[in-house]
């Protein structure tokens, strides 16, 4: 009993506790499973692709030169150029996951930091940071992305950065408002009365309370970023063809929606599934991390 651990909630590693809690909740476990499958697909794409995703096969087109529907040799059918859709989707998982995680991750961290700093310090810091945020908000996001992408050489990482640059503003607005009301609360006052440094108050007391908003807003951002990447690809400043991403598969084929619906539906479904999986995990994470909600999940 004489080690410092008794002051902590549980003596086991926090990480293991959180993971096992996640697995006990069916919806969260489903979300985790979906994410695992997608990560697996992205990592081992070359090994599990049934066909060459770039090969414009003659067999992949019907007699009229149209794409093949799902079934048969090509499991999910082929696209307009006779390429295997299943293989392109598997390879596209790489792009979409990187965009969804990296671009969104940067946006979340940047947006949350700006919001917290402005909300906690107030005064001039807040005035400058928030006016800059407003400026970014007023600027047409797509135009900004096109300009940035045109200046730099288009590559996956640049695309991710560009998306992060236009997506952090909403997050910072939300977090700013919430930090401001939290900073007025009595338990933060107590910290000042104790003599805690600003850094300690921010990290130990404000951040845990903001985490649920950050997680929820962050997971919602994943689908937005995946679609924004698709828009950029469509405009020619995103991921360069013939490299596939879920977004550009939809955009390449959207005009043939009525004759070849699978080309739009299947990648669309995958984007929804990815966003849903992150949302389910995020929701559960928020509940697990809040001790006042313990034992109330349904």
């Amino acid at each position: 009993m004489s080690d410092a651990q008794t002051l902590r909630p549980k003596s086991q590693s926090r990480f293991i506790v959180v993971i096992s809690e996640l697995m006990r909740r069916p919806r969260a476990a489903f979300g985790m499973a979906v994410i695992m499958v997608m990560v697996f697909g992205a990592v081992f794409a070359p090994l599990i692709m049934p066909h060459d995703p770039f090969e414009q096969s003659f067999d992949g087109l019907d007699l009229m030169g149209g794409p093949l529907p799902p079934g048969g040799d090509y499991l999910l059918g082929t696209d307009l150029l006779g390429r295997d859709l299943a293989s392109r989707l598997i390879l596209g998982t790489r792009t979409s996951l990187i965009i969804g995680l990296v671009a969104n991750g940067i946006a979340v961290i940047l947006g949350a930091s700006v919001g917290i700093a402005a909300g906690f310090f107030g005064g001039w810091t807040a005035a400058i940071l928030m006016r800059f945020t407003d400026l970014m908000m007023a600027f047409p996001a797509l135009l900004l992305a096109i300009v940035l992408a045109a200046i730099f050489q288009p590559s996956l990482m640049i695309v991710a950065l560009v998306i992060a640059m236009v997506n952090w503003v909403q997050m910072s607005r939300v977090i700013y408002t919430e930090t401001r009301s939290l900073a007025e609360r009595e338990f933060i006052q107590v910290q000042r009365a104790i003599g805690s440094s600003s850094l300690r108050i921010l990290g130990k007391h404000l951040l845990p309370h903001l985490l649920s908003s950050i997680v929820v807003f962050g997971t919602l951002g994943i689908s937005t970023t995946v679609l924004l990447e698709a828009t950029l690809s469509f405009l020619g400043v995103g991921v360069q063809p013939p490299m596939p991403s879920w977004g550009n598969i939809i955009f390449e084929n959207q005009t043939y929606f009525s004759t070849a619906p699978w080309l739009v539906f299947i990648p669309g479904l995958l984007i929804v599934l990815l966003a849903l999986a992150f949302n389910l995990v995020g929701d559960a994470l928020r509940d697990i991390l809040d001790p006042t909600l313990k034992g109330r999940h349904g």
Binding site: E186, F187, Q189, V190, A193, I194, H205, P208, H209
Partner: peptide, 16 residues
């Protein structure tokens, strides 16, 4: 040191 009015509000709900 100071003891505040509302003991519920002056404790951090996320810390033991």
């Amino acid at each position: 040191q100071m003891v505040f009015q509302d003991p519920g509000a002056s404790l951090d709900s996320r810390m033991t």
